[in-house]
């Protein structure tokens, strides 16, 4: 059980790191959202389920209740994170942030 928790945590931190590097390296606003939205969702799901798994080792009533709450966080995050990304993109489009497009001919 401990090994599973450790692996999940390490994977989660890895994807958090990818998201952070992505948000620093990518060239324009819209592509940064790719890194932010996707990697954060996956990383939060992984780390938070690691916490929930570690927490049920005692298997008492209080522990199960806490784990339920942790899974509520997972559920909420997986719904809220794309919504937030969508809201930011919409705001950017309305405000008029230009997407960075490569210089090339029109697409066939």
């Amino acid at each position: 059980m401990n090994w599973v928790v450790t692996v999940l945590l390490v994977l989660g931190v890895f994807f958090f790191a990818i998201g952070t590097i992505g948000i620093l390296r990518l060239p324009d606003f819209y592509s940064r959202l790719h890194a932010a939205g996707k990697c954060d969702t996956l990383a939060m799901t992984l780390t938070v389920s690691a916490v929930a798994l570690y927490n049920i080792h005692g298997l008492s009533f209080g522990n199960i209740l806490v784990s339920w709450k942790v899974f509520a966080i997972v559920f909420f995050i997986s719904m809220a994170s794309p919504t937030a990304t969508h809201a930011i993109t919409k705001a950017a489009l309305v405000v008029g942030v230009e997407p960075w497009l490569k210089k090339r001919g029109p697409r066939k």
Partner: peptide, 13 residues
């Protein structure tokens, strides 16, 4: 805003 949002999700964990 994106940066602050990401900081917030890390803070939750």
């Amino acid at each position: 805003i994106v940066g602050v949002n990401m900081i917030g999700s890390k803070t939750t964990v």
